[in-house]
Design a protein around this nucleic acid. Structure first.
Lengths: 143, 143
DNA sequence: ACAGAAATGTAGCCTCGGCTACATATCCGT
DNA sequence: ACGGATATGTAGCCGAGGCTACATTTCTGT
């Protein structure tokens, strides 16, 4: 076995930390986008619908919404629907665009649409701006 | 606003559930691959090195290794290094291949190598077999 | 060989994101 | 308008994955 001195600077640690940070953002993004979807479709986002579509129980959805409110992304009053703030709407819009871009790229390289949609749900949260830009460029030259 | 009856079967819920499942696998995969890397490089994987490279403190690494052992992926004895079981080695190999494939594809569509490496760390855990197959096919016809 | 350094183990705390169980409020049909 | 159905809120539990603080063991240099 090699007898290195083994003082490699933890550039990998940096990557893993970033990944963990992205993970904590992921749920916020998913809920925000879901709420935005519901508002577009029904004019409001009810806890029950959010929960059903996210595949969780309603107390879990309530907790998530509480976190969104804490982060300034959403507002709501007891027994009333949930709505997005300016900040939340902005995030929803960005997330939506990113999601579409990821799905489009996957399909463009030959991934079956159904798989593309499912995988994008997980992938989209870890795509950096640089990668997003590259995706857009690729799609432009390969329509 | 639309007045749907709104009985859409939660196909989205399915997707989010899958994403959550993948999430719980992600850490296992990362640690397994890391341990495999260390064994290749130094003949053993010490807790301190695992922790440093993963960017966590050593008790966190210890807990993760405990979980790996529970899942039958690794073995270790007190104050001795950590080693992979057959199961663990298999996972490490698959994860390694998948990681390489994801990075290669990202680079192939024009993502800068550094970003590709970082993003792949998060993306790789959410790529289905169907997508993986499509990636491989794409790389074959676009070298 | 032994003391100090370094590695590992262990205890206990936190947050998050799930859950169930139960309490309360709102909605809606008769 | 009222009562049952439905929606929402709240309390409390769990496991995962972080952390710090402290105890113990192993390693290492003189």
């Amino acid at each position: 076995m090699t007898e290195d001195h083994f003082d490699d600077t933890p550039v990998q640690a940096e990557r893993f930390s970033q990944t963990r940070t992205a993970q904590s953002q992921a749920l916020l993004e998913d809920y925000t986008e879901m709420i935005d979807d519901l508002i577009r479709a029904h004019g409001e986002a009810r806890i029950t619908d959010i929960a059903r579509l996210m595949g969780v129980t309603h107390p879990t959805a309530t907790k998530a919404v509480a976190r969104l409110k804490r982060e300034g992304l959403a507002v709501s009053r007891p027994y009333r629907g949930v709505f997005l703030t300016e900040l939340g709407s902005g995030m929803a819009e960005r997330v939506r665009g990113r999601h579409r871009l990821v799905v489009d790229l996957l399909v463009a390289v030959g991934v079956p649409p159904e798989a593309a949609e499912t995988d994008a749900e997980g992938i989209e949260h870890y795509v950096s701006d640089a990668t997003l830009t590259a995706f857009a460029a690729f799609l432009t030259r390969q329509p």
